[in-house]
Amino acid sequence: MIDTYDSNEAMLASLKAGGMGTYDVAVPGDYMVKIMAGAGLLDTMAEGELANKGNIAAEWADPNFDPGRQHSIPYQWGSTSFAVNRDVYTGDINNTDILFNPPAELQGKINVLDSQGEVMALAALHMDIPQCSTDRDQLKALNAMLLGAKANWVSFNSDTAKEVLVSGDAAAGMIYDGFSAKAREEGANVEYAFPTQGYIAWMDNVVLLNDAPNRENALKFMDFLLVPENVAQLTNWTRYAAGVEGVAPLLDEALRTLPEANPHEGAGQAVFIDACDEEVQAVYDTIWTNLKK
């Protein structure tokens, strides 16, 4: 039995609350790698410690959230937006109104991810305000918008985000692209949206934690996750995308044309989540905690 988590913020909180020294590696998203490095939670890998580091795809080899890949390697990347059950709603879904100002057919039938960074970033796109804004009026409006939208949500859940769409307990739900593909492949008549306002792009990464009890083994595990055959096996299972060279020829044919990974022409921009500075983050934490009450 291994410990798992359902959001970047939950993982960070558990590590800060005494989890350090227990685990060797964790799998934070891009912005969370930056936050963890800033908080001193990540160990540094010297040049040459990872035999397979050169397998990292060029576009992911020097990301702004971990310059030079000193602390992390790519795990998977993808997007987060929302999926809609087309038996319930047949109108246009490529608009963040689906989550935050939903049509009558979807009101009270929406699941939202229990994931602060993703909800806040998508809400900022919906309102066309910058992430990590410190403008008081914008913050007030953001808070009011979220509280109003919540009246139309049935649940806040990440680990059942796929199941509630398959079971029909939710008619629409915020979800990751691969999870939405799995819901569809499991029989739900859902379509993944690419809102015109934009949607979330992410990369999850395996990081080497400070005080890792098995540091040498952790490095071997990370090297294992840089072997194309292994990453292809992972990617065929997750339905996301890989950040390692040589994986593409080993992927399922269906992944090439996956609707969830191929935005249509009218799609907005895919936007990475910003890591707010600590003071600003505290404001967003308050909004989030209040929303979750």
């Binding site: 988590y5 993982m11 096996q233």
Partner: peptide, 27 residues
């Protein structure tokens, strides 16, 4: 060979891959 203690997201590491890692490294 000992072990590696991984802290991942839920439903994010297929068992077959974990088994393959154990078969290859003994970990």
């Amino acid at each position: 060979e000992g072990k590696v203690v991984v802290y991942p997201w839920f439903e994010y590491m297929p068992q077959e891959l974990v088994d393959k890692f154990t078969a290859e490294t003994g970990m």
